[in-house]
């Protein structure tokens, strides 16, 4: 990997981490496990459409690991990791179908898949199927949060194009 590319990935990961930590400071008004805006995924959505699959996966992995260490909530790593795996696999497939002008749509599916992965992990860990009662709420919040982060990413794309020299 070229040093320039590596640096870009590192900067994006750092930005995602900063967003993640700032979001932690915002109190969550919904007392439902797994409901979250997930602002750091603005970067993930952007990366899915602008970097190769393994590069995006590396970024997300580093962010998850460092994020759980910084937030002190290592128990949550399992849930967020399984969510992210589902989300990434789905989005990497979807990017072949959905063009970049519909980034928000890809993001909605990513968010819903993320919540699905989380849900399955939570049910597997606690061995309690009653948890599925939260799934409808997660679907609604996933659609809204996914659309929001996706739109944010869509607004960022043209701005980043201006400062980023063409390489590929």
């Amino acid at each position: 990997m070229k040093p320039r590319r590596l640096a870009e990935l590192a900067v994006l990961t750092a930005v995602a981490l900063i967003i993640f930590i700032i979001e932690l400071q915002i109190p969550n008004p919904f007392p439902i496990p797994g409901v979250k805006l997930g602002l750091a995924n603005i970067i993930t959505v952007y990366a899915v459409y602008h970097y190769r699959a393994y590069e995006t996966a590396m970024m997300v992995a580093v962010r998850l690991l460092l994020g759980s260490i910084f937030s002190g909530n290592i128990a949550a790593l399992l849930y967020s990791a399984s969510g992210s795996v589902c989300c990434l696999l789905g989005m990497l497939l979807l990017r072949k179908i959905i063009d970049e002008r519909h980034l928000w749509l890809a993001s909605v599916f990513g968010a819903v898949l993320h919540n699905t992965g989380q849900m399955l992990a939570a049910v597997a860990v606690t061995q309690t199927a009653q948890l599925f009662a939260y799934y409808p709420f997660l679907l609604v919040s996933g659609c809204l949060a996914g659309a929001f982060t996706g739109l944010c990413a869509q607004f960022i794309v043209p701005r980043l194009k201006k400062i980023k020299p063409k390489t590929k």
Partner: peptide, 15 residues
Amino acid sequence: LIVAAAVIFLAGITG
């Protein structure tokens, strides 16, 4: 896919 997303959303609200 937009329709699919809308269906997921509505299913979520109903649920």
